[in-house]
Design a protein around this nucleic acid. Structure first.
Length: 515
DNA sequence: ATAGGGTTAG
């Protein structure tokens, strides 16, 4: 009898069993518990579905301890569902436990583990899984290599991903659509848009053709880099290939032109969308509302928000944050706050970003106590403040002259580590100390931070101090710091501006040409 | 069929 027929009959048989008929109407988690109680094998005909990780973990642990040992396929299925819920660390833990019990993985299990290590930021372990393929005689598949490349890209190792790509191609292995998609996205997200573009051009003549999403990824990358002509070239190239650009393509292009201040082009593209009768989505509206806000056209921005609702698109928390930011930029913090309160009343849940914008707004107009209250409000609502929240507040407190409160918060960050102070935090303090004419104290602080708190200064840290030296007419000190900076960092345009300004002031043009 | 990618906004 054919295997498929046997399987079909078996399935039917299972279904007709009275107990399983009853079970079919129960949530799967309950079925799991029932099966555990009666130590019956689970119906394996459908995929595992769990309401929460705990159930999945419980089932996995139960199966691992069973006698005789369960099939690795069953365990792999459970691992797969846990990974789909994004509990990578849990899956790694379970896998280790399984291996310690002497249960050996097979190729699919290993693929899952590479995925887990990639998301957990442990590429070293992911690579050691690769060697297990060889050790146990499994063949890495297209899935294996895709997963590995994605992990490398996620962890900023785009060069390694490209190396793997080169190796695979050199072996005469064909890249499929998914592999190319992974690589192109990885390249764009690592800022290597040009390489991604070259890859895309090369694909044109190959067996696997670039698809809409691949085009969109590269168009977006080009727009983010401000390479608008290239983005338009690619757009026309799509049209020529018979791939219709969608709302995502247009949204990326409009974003690019808006950010370049090329309103006419952005408007033309918007017109194309209307002519083609493509409906705008929330992203498109948000980008245009943001552009209007940045151009101080707050009324129009607000009107567009209403248009959005009329057209059946609900503004989301990002829309409201954009509007709030628009108000704050114009020092209309109370209006931003009114909007914020109204949004919450309407049942939209605020997030960290929306709080951060409002906190920044209050700090800017020196109402730091209201900023602090907002942070307390976050704790009440279980919205976890992030490093931006803390840095904004520390900066606000410093600028309001409340240095002891600022230091209190930084110390709290340092000892609780939730979040840890970063370069920006320390730069805010350095800037404050410098601006208040305590240059020598700032230098002392700078050195002690490096030695005691493992502070790694960036260009801005140096710029702050160099600027401090310049304002105190101590150009030698500024030059020494510049020398010091050259050891690890490249100065940026701001560094040169500060120095040129100071040197021009003293008309020491001879020194200027040296820098 | 248990495993792999994918685009836009603050």
């Amino acid at each position: 009898m054919l295997y498929a027929t046997r399987y079909a009959i078996l399935k039917l048989h299972r279904f007709l069993l009275p107990s399983s008929n009853l079970l079919a109407f129960m949530p799967y988690a309950h079925r799991t518990r029932l099966c555990l109680l009666h130590s019956q094998p689970l119906p394996s005909r459908d995929a595992y579905k769990f309401d929460n990780v705990e159930d999945a973990v419980a089932l996995f642990n139960c199966k691992v301890d069973m006698h005789p040992q369960p099939s690795i396929v069953e365990l792999t299925k459970i691992l797969g569902t846990i990974v789909k819920m994004k509990y990578y660390a849990t899956a790694i833990h379970l896998y280790t436990h399984m291996e310690s019990k002497g249960i050996l993985p097979f190729s699919v299990t290993l693929n899952i583990m590479i995925n887990c290590y990639g998301h957990a930021g442990q590429m070293g372990f992911a690579l050691s899984v690769m060697s297990k393929f060889v050790k146990w005689g499994f063949k890495p598949s297209a899935v294996t290599f895709t997963t590995l490349m994605k992990g490398l890209c996620l962890n900023g190792k785009i060069l390694d991903a490209l190396y793997i790509y080169g190796k695979i191609v050199a072996k005469g292995f064909w890249f499929d659509e998914v592999m190319y998609g992974t690589l192109i996205n990885g390249l764009c997200k690592s800022g290597e848009t040009r390489v991604a573009l070259q890859r895309l051009w090369k694909m044109e003549g190959q067996f696997v053709k670039p698809n809409l999403v691949m085009y969109n990824i590269v168009v977006d990358g080009l727009c983010k880099d401000g390479l608008l002509n290239d983005a338009l070239d690619l757009y026309f190239n799509m049209l020529g290939r018979g791939i219709s650009p969608d709302i995502v393509t247009y949204t990326s292009l409009i974003y690019g032109f808006c950010h370049a201040g090329q309103w006419k082009e952005a408007g033309l593209l918007l017109n194309v969308i209307f002519v083609k009768d493509i409906s705008l989505d929330v992203y498109t509206f948000n980008i245009i509302i943001d552009a209007l806000c940045k151009e101080e056209m707050l009324l129009q921005a607000h009107d567009l928000c209403d248009v959005m609702i009329l057209r059946g698109q609900q503004p989301n928390i990002i829309t409201y944050t954009i509007l709030m930011n628009g108000y704050c930029l114009n020092n209309k913090v109370d209006e931003a706050r009114n909007l914020f309160d109204m949004v919450i009343e309407r049942g939209v849940v605020p997030d960290v970003w929306s709080y951060n914008i409002l906190i920044k707004g209050y700090c800017k107009i020196n109402r730091v106590d209201e900023a602090r209250n907002l942070m307390k409000d976050m704790f009440r609502k279980n919205i976890v403040p992030n490093i931006v929240t803390y840095n904004t507040l520390v900066d606000g407190l410093c600028k309001a002259g409340r240095i002891s409160s600022a230091r209190e918060i930084v110390n709290e960050m340092h000892y609780c580590g939730q979040p840890f102070p970063n370069v920006t935090t320390y730069n805010i303090i350095l800037d404050f100390v410098c601006k208040n004419q305590h240059l020598d104290e700032a230098i002392r602080l700078f050195k002690s931070l490096i030695f005691e708190r493992r502070f790694v200064p960036n260009v801005w840290s140096y710029n702050i101090l160099i600027s401090g030296y310049c304002k105190n007419k101590r150009l030698d000190g500024a030059m020494n710091l510049l020398q010091d900076m050259f050891k690890n960092l490249d100065p940026n345009i701001e560094t040169y501006n500060i120095l040129l300004h100071a040197l021009c002031d003293r008309q020491q043009l001879g020194k200027m040409s040296k820098t």
